[in-house]
Design a protein around this nucleic acid. Structure first.
Lengths: 208, 208
DNA sequence: GTCTATATACAGATAGAC
DNA sequence: GTCTATCTGTATATAGAC
């Protein structure tokens, strides 16, 4: 009987915890931490306020837990860096995929949230960076090194080159989205810009 | 008598307004909007809460007015783009000056604040962008065009090239600062990175 | 115009029943 | 473990005296 109640209890408890985290992730991402009240969170998760405190201790802990969970899914696949494909195609596709990810509503909100809380919640920023930019930079640097070994590129510092390419690609479009500017680059213009980035990156680092 | 009292009144009133704006700018920049209370603002400005409301109507209006004032001073001088100096020197100096500005405590806080309030206060973001990035992009694009006309560069799209150079330069260092990351690039490494940016930009767009 | 004192609302967090 | 009901602090905003 003790076992049963324990098992049932744990199961229920875990389920509520998931509900809370899901609701918290959604609300925090869309509204930010200050504009989201514990009452609203409780309602959205279908539990009482007290249950929130039982599981997470307080608002800040819940916030951190929710954003941490969200950060983990913020990444680009390593499979984009296929050594069998032509170098320009790989770079160009990667650029497109990166921009699609970065400009998505969710990614922008998450990015804004991390930057907003940089002073108060530095651990979130480190997690965000490790999951996203850092791993992508590593993938690209390794890929460029392999291409250099094959004689397709002339790179003295792959870390620098990866950085230069990625931040060049992000460019104005990402900044405009983060700042929610009125005039933002349209899709057609961006495609041209990405073409240009690949072209001149290869001109700078090409072996020929 | 009516004139005198009016004049005296206006003078005092204007002075208080300046005090309020100064205090508001400082507090909002360092603490953000939610963590700064009207009471704290009144105390810092040396006036009563009611005076805040008389002059600005409410907290949000005061916030917008304060940040607007601050944004105006956020810019890089056009004088950096001296046509008489060698192109590589100009680019390299500009990169250094830009990074010094961007990584300053004040600029980082302002940048974070604008991004945080992108949804709620879009006008601030537009002002920030116009005063800072937009004008710099224009200066650089114009400069590159002049250099191309002189035969020092081969550029098909100066806007793209300016964008590529500036965002390449900002690179990881700026992101790390915005995110308040634990491990940040040191000064020495950054100088090397900026050297690399200039070198490969010229290799990509050079006329020779 | 400016201040002191106050109204009103709502936040985060807790107590106690089941 | 979970809920309902409540405590306590503090925020924005206002009323009224000078």
């Amino acid at each position: 009987m003790s076992d049963q109640s324990k098992t049932r209890g744990r199961g229920k408890s875990e389920k509520k915890k998931v509900q809370i985290l899901d609701a918290a992730t959604t609300l925090f991402i869309t509204q930010g931490i200050d504009a989201t009240s514990m009452e609203q969170l409780a309602e959205a998760a279908g539990v009482s306020k007290q249950t929130l405190y039982s599981h997470f201790g307080g608002k800040e802990e819940l916030f951190v837990a929710a954003i941490k969970q969200r950060c983990i899914h913020y990444a680009l696949s390593e499979e984009l860096f296929d050594d069998q494909r032509p170098l320009p195609d790989v770079l160009r596709d990667m650029a497109s995929h990166l921009m699609e990810l970065l400009l998505s509503e969710d990614a922008i909100k998450l990015h804004r949230l991390c930057i907003s809380g940089a002073d108060q919640f530095p651990e979130i920023c480190n997690l965000f960076y490790d999951a996203g930019p850092k791993s992508l930079l590593k993938f690209l640097a390794d890929y460029l090194q392999r291409q250099a070994n094959e004689g397709n590129l002339k790179v003295d510092n792959c870390g620098f080159a990866a950085q230069q390419f990625l931040f060049m690609v992000k460019g104005e479009a990402h900044m405009e989205a983060l700042l929610n500017l009125q005039d933002q680059i349209n899709a057609e213009e961006m495609e041209k810009y990405l073409d240009s980035c690949v072209k001149y990156f290869l001109k700078a680092y090409g072996s020929s």
